[in-house]
């Protein structure tokens, strides 16, 4: 069951982390959009596999929730949203 929740929570996190990377890399984000999508997919897969590490189910799921929130807040500090080049 933890894998199911992990799969759902990892998708937005993987994509927001890629967004943060896109904000950090000194290149127009649209010029490497396909690579961002591929990396987001690999990251999504890896995040699902990482939930198996802790003994109990809830710490990684809470961790994912917190990470999602933190990433969403950090993204607000970038000019990416709505700034399609």
């Amino acid at each position: 069951m933890r894998a199911l929740f992990a799969a759902a929570l990892s998708l937005p996190l993987a994509i927001m982390l890629m967004g943060l990377l896109a904000a950090l890399v000194p290149l127009p984000w649209s010029s490497w959009l396909v690579l961002q999508m591929l990396l987001a997919i690999v990251l999504w897969m890896v995040l699902i596999s990482l939930v198996a590490i802790p003994r109990r189910a809830w710490p990684p799921l809470v961790g994912l929730l917190v990470a999602n929130g933190a990433s969403a807040l950090l993204l607000q500090a970038t000019s990416l949203y709505g700034g399609a080049a």
């Binding site: 998708l11 994509i15 927001m16 890629m18 967004g19 987001a40 700034g83 399609a84």
Partner: peptide
């Protein structure tokens, strides 16, 4: 692809 593009549009890059 469609799912990723939807979530990416909603959370990171906006409707454009």
């Amino acid at each position: 692809f469609t799912l990723i593009a939807l979530v990416m549009g909603a959370l990171v890059f906006g409707p454009q």
